[in-house]
């Protein structure tokens, strides 16, 4: 029985710039001291909260569609489900063999022949060489590439590569299949054949999680759906319900589902980053020390969501001076 259980899963990314990735800066940072306070050791590293407090329980037979805006955390969630990202907090338990189909042409070697690449992709999927040899005929036949399979795939067109990758990826049914965005597969005639095969293939899979912007695809393939916003699950239920909610949140008037979501996320981080950068490199009033101090304080306030305490005029000024440096 395949199942995936997520309990209070949170994932945050530190965004490393080249500055924090260099040992020199780390050493200088620890030598100058004092600037790294215990509660704000992250001041120099912006942290993106990609997923927050996710609770999900997926069982055999589930066909889940993930919907949400760009950057809502769909791909991150898929990677957690696939066991690629281990969350900072919370528990993940995955039962069953999992195949993530994120980038269908991942890891193809352009200099190897079509046949070699079929075997290589099989190895990626966790099959052995001898298992692949048994399937080689069937896969080769499905691709309809004929003698081209003896040529290195750098000579292939994009559509031909797609056929090859598609044929291998759908030759073995895993317990859990994770799909990011739609799988396009070549010309119309092949598409017809592919969708039949996809149907047959997906019938053998016990859990499918599909992330897509295409409502048609989601309502065709999925029985349940999950709506994500700012790294949180804001809606779960049948596909029709959730898609309705998604449409409302997208087209409807600006109604806030939760008070803390009132202010959109991007400006927050942007303002926060700009404030810090402006203070570092900018050219407005105050000694650089005072300004760095102010920036740290402002970043802290923004992070705590104490909007009313932020010196808005100065923040706007700093950001503007960043965009148009004075001579």
């Amino acid at each position: 029985m395949a199942s995936i259980i997520l309990e209070q899963v949170s994932v945050s990314f530190p965004v490393y710039s080249s500055a924090t990735r260099s040992i020199k800066n780390r050493l200088i940072q620890s030598a100058t001291g004092g600037q790294i306070r215990s509660e704000s050791g992250s001041d120099r590293i912006s942290v993106v909260q990609a997923l927050q407090d996710i609770n999900l329980r997926l069982e055999s037979g589930d066909r889940i569609g993930l919907v949400g805006h760009n950057g809502a955390g769909k791909t991150t969630l898929l990677r957690v489900l696939g066991g690629i990202y281990e969350p900072n907090e919370g528990r993940v338990s995955i039962e069953g063999s999992t195949v993530p189909l994120f980038d269908i042409s991942l890891g193809m070697d352009p200099e190897s022949t079509g046949y070699e690449n079929i075997v290589l992709r099989g190895l990626y999927l966790g099959l052995s060489r001898s298992q692949m040899r048994g399937r080689l005929e069937e896969i080769a036949e499905f691709t309809e590439l004929g003698d081209f399979l003896n040529l290195p795939i750098r000579t292939y067109s994009a559509g031909m590569r797609m056929r090859l990758a598609f044929a291998v990826s759908t030759s073995v049914a895993p317990d859990i299949l994770l799909i990011d965005e739609g799988i396009g597969a070549g010309d119309a005639a092949f598409l017809q054949k592919a969708s039949e095969r996809l149907k047959l293939f997906t019938e053998q899979v016990s859990i499918i999680v599909l992330s897509s912007h295409s409502e048609a695809l989601i309502s065709k393939m999925c029985t349940k759906a999950v709506l994500m916003e700012h790294g949180r699950v804001v809606g779960a239920g049948t596909t029709a319900e959730v898609l309705e909610q998604y449409r409302e949140s997208r087209d409807g008037p600006l109604k806030a589902p939760a008070p803390e979501a009132e202010v959109p996320r991007e400006p927050e981080t942007l303002a926060e980053q700009s404030a810090v950068t402006a203070a570092r490199e900018g050219s407005s009033e105050g000694s650089s020390e005072e300004r760095a101090d102010w920036a740290d304080r402002t970043a802290h306030l923004l992070r705590e969501r104490r909007w009313q305490d932020v010196d808005l005029d100065r923040l706007v000024g700093e950001v503007e001076s960043l965009a148009r440096p004075r001579p």
């Binding site: 690629i84 991942l106 890891g107």
Partner: peptide
């Protein structure tokens, strides 16, 4: 690329 796509 592989690390972010492959659960190996």
């Amino acid at each position: 690329g592989m690390i972010r796509q492959l659960n190996a």
